[in-house]
Structures are given as C-alpha cells and as structure tokens.
Amino acid sequence: MAKCKGRYWLNFTGPTATEPLIYQLSKKFDVVFNIRQATISDTMGLMGVEFEADREVLQAAIAWLETQGVKVKPVELNTIEG
C-alpha cells in the first residue's frame, strides 16, 4: 500500500491541551510523526506536524484525533481570506 505524507496544524483546546495524544496516536496507528514546531499553554496548544502512513491509516488517525477534540487542518490550507 502506498505511503502518503501530510502536513498539519493541530489545535488542542480545553482538556486535549494536556493529554498525551500524539503518544496515544502512535500506539493506536502505524503513523510516523515528525513535530516541526509547537506552542503549548495549560489551556491550549498548537502543533505543526508531518504524518506519514498508508492512506487509510492516515485518514483513520486524523479522524481519531478529531474525535478527541483536536482541530486538524492541513498546512496547505493556511489561506488567509474567506
């Protein structure tokens, strides 16, 4: 199965800000993660991360993050106007 890469901004708010979600993600899914930058406070967090995995696994991993309350947005979508 073809591996694919994706670059994302993860936005952690509320309780997710202090949970070890990236650790849990790596245990649940076969995803290689590469954190490029992060800022964390006790109530919020923002992380730029690259994921590499089989397409279906990557989609499932992102869907899981979203169920945990993390807002996931591809870096390429960092557009500036509506």
Binding site: Q37, T39, L46, V75, L77
Partner: peptide, 8 residues
C-alpha cells in the same frame, strides 16, 4: 514570528 498558526 513564533508560529504560523491558525490556519484557514
């Protein structure tokens, strides 16, 4: 900057 953040 500090982060490129947000996104939209």
């Amino acid at each position: 900057g500090g982060d490129g953040r947000g996104a939209d």
